[in-house]
Amino acid sequence: MKVMVCLKQVPHQDARLEIRDDSTWIKEDNIKFEINSYDTYALEEALRIKDANEAEVVVVSVGPDRLTQALRTALGMGADRAVHVNDPAAEGSDSLGIAKILAAVAKEESPDLVITGLMADDDNYSAVPPMLSQLIGMPSATGVLKAEAQDGGYRVERELEGGALEVVDLPQPCLIAVQSGLNQVRYASLKGIMQAKKKPIDVKTAADLGLEGQVGASAQKVKVEKVYVPPKGDTAEMVEGSSEEIASTLVAKIKELGLL
């Protein structure tokens, strides 16, 4: 059994975001990065399969040198090895470009199961997992809150709106894109971190994967014109002062609403 986990390294959730001078993305210098929160659930789900059965967990990601840190964290949590596609020629890939890179890796790895997060905390796209499943011809389910192995595949529960769940049977091999909250994610242990230093990270380029010219900025189908801070809503009245002053202003308002 081989499980491939796709993960992305994203700016830390508490990072102070500033827009780059050319307005096409945020400034990435001087901020901390972390593994995309949805992908930590994906990795945890894979590690639980490994804990319960014999399974090899391979983490795969695309990104620059800083990505090594995220991959070491994943290895420290228990993944067996990593594939790092690190290539300036892959930079600026849109979601389909990233999906093509991951598909090329999946074709080399032939996993029995691919697990990903539902979306990325930075661009909020939720595009790559279904694209990847299409490109490698695997059945897929997104927003999965529960996955159970059964004869020949998996029975999964997809989150719908308002707490309803859709139950779907997927034959193996398949791709599961998990929703946040389906498990409690472990931390890397000190022993795990020490062991991770000896685990292999296989670095590849787009050319290694036979994708020269097919990915990266030149192959973009969607162009970022500009990112910007949303215009502030003009409805909110901002209240300032000491905690007591703020509290008394709020109480006066709550009285006006007839709730006190």
Partner: peptide, 23 residues
């Protein structure tokens, strides 16, 4: 961009080799 929309739309984009923008 509903639970069914985000499940299928990116697949269509990949199948058509199309541009894709979500939400």
């Amino acid at each position: 961009n509903t639970p069914t929309g985000w499940d299928v739309a990116p697949r269509i984009a990949a199948a058509l080799d199309a541009a894709f923008v979500s939400d």
